[in-house]
Design a binder for these strands. Structure first.
Lengths: 211, 211
DNA sequence: CGTTCCATTGAATGAGTTCAATAGTTGTGG
DNA sequence: CCACAACTATTGAACTCATTCAATGGAACG
């Protein structure tokens, strides 16, 4: 979407393609050609916060403002990945040579800013149950594989991940998901979730659970 | 910073300058020439979340990805303001004509994405006291006026605003700030705060209060 | 000088965390 | 193929931090 990896825009550039196994730590600001990457931040207390999950075609890393050093995010390959690597100077060269690319990048970053602000709203003003519902809806839309009886969110996706996405604990996620499961909204197992009733999940995300 | 309002880049463009009183609602995606604007989102439950406070020179509004309609944010003038208005089509024209501007916009948006992600981390993993300390540090850096005995955060800035920034309630903000005040970290009054001990506030933001 | 808005403080309540124990799943090596 | 270890998930009970409800205190403003 962002970088036209198979297309023309990147042709002729000095790109290194890196193949990574799931769990590997990804460095630098690079576009993803294939696979899924978790974007997270560590806290002083050792807790991780899961900011985003990026798919093939998306870009990560600090769109470095010159003069700012150091990566504030950590990226971890969640599936086996192919990461394209591009140096900062080459990246800047592209931006100055191809305005269209810059505009695309801007749009993508703008979209992610919007999304981030939505998450901020969620964390600020919504109950845990609503945040978890919202996270499931988001994941289903972004990562879900359509199945006959619902949308499957596969990828090695644990309670731990959901907790880190919604700013809560594994135990609470487990409790809430048990409830959702009892109500027939989702089916769940070790490292997978299937969304059965997207509509009601969306409703819970917006309005909270029915009392 | 972002748009060189007094400079060359905007010259000759069809810009409307709007003068607004404090409290007025600001529409559309526009650069701010002067004044301060609160950027917020409403929740279904009627609670407001304060996403950012923008100063003269900053840009706000959805960097609309084509095909996405509607503004998800609300902007409110916090002081009297001069807002420059630019149509989306003109904005796109600028971006395609002046690559340098696009890069600057990209950097600014990238920076705000970073900041947003930091807030997400805060909301996810830190206690209220730490978040309030962090918010004060951020505001002091961004809005503070240096004084002999500390940094003054003036602008009509209430407990309500701080609560909406940190995802908590007026009462809790009041309690925490009373504590900070007793410990000599800040001085405070109606609609103003002065930071007296930035270092210790930063420490609290990172590590939590000393027991 | 009263009205209105903003801030403070107290007490009760509750949502979510924490600690702890148990149960199910996956993978490994004998 | 089974037994064991390692990991992930579930569930319970006690506790705690922050919210909520409520009442009071000051500042600003007409």
């Amino acid at each position: 979407m962002l970088f036209c990896v198979n297309g023309t825009l990147m042709r002729g550039l000095a790109l290194n393609a890196n193949l990574l196994n799931a769990g590997a730590r990804v460095k630098a600001h690079d576009p993803i050609a294939m696979g899924k990457v978790k974007l997270l931040r560590h806290t002083a207390s050792g807790r991780d916060v899961l900011l985003d999950i990026l798919r093939g075609g998306e870009y990560f890393g600090s769109l470095a403002v010159p003069g700012r050093r150091g990566y504030t995010e950590t990226a971890i390959a969640q599936t086996d990945c192919c990461i394209l690597q591009i140096s900062l100077s080459n990246f800047e060269k592209i931006l100055s040579l191809y305005p269209d690319v810059t505009v695309k990048v801007l749009q993508a970053v703008g979209q992610r800013l919007q999304d981030s602000q939505e998450v901020i709203k969620q964390l600020s003003a919504y109950a845990v149950e609503q945040r978890i519902a919202a996270a499931l809806v988001r994941l289903a839309g972004k990562m879900g594989e359509e199945q006959q009886d619902g949308t499957l969110i596969q990828l090695s996706f644990s309670r731990q991940d959901l907790a880190a996405m919604t700013g809560t604990t594994i135990e609470t996620v487990s409790r809430v998901m048990s409830r959702f499961s009892e109500d027939g909204l989702i089916s769940t197992g070790r490292k997978w979730v299937a969304v059965n009733d997207l509509g009601r999940l969306e409703q819970i995300a917006k309005e909270g659970a029915v009392n």
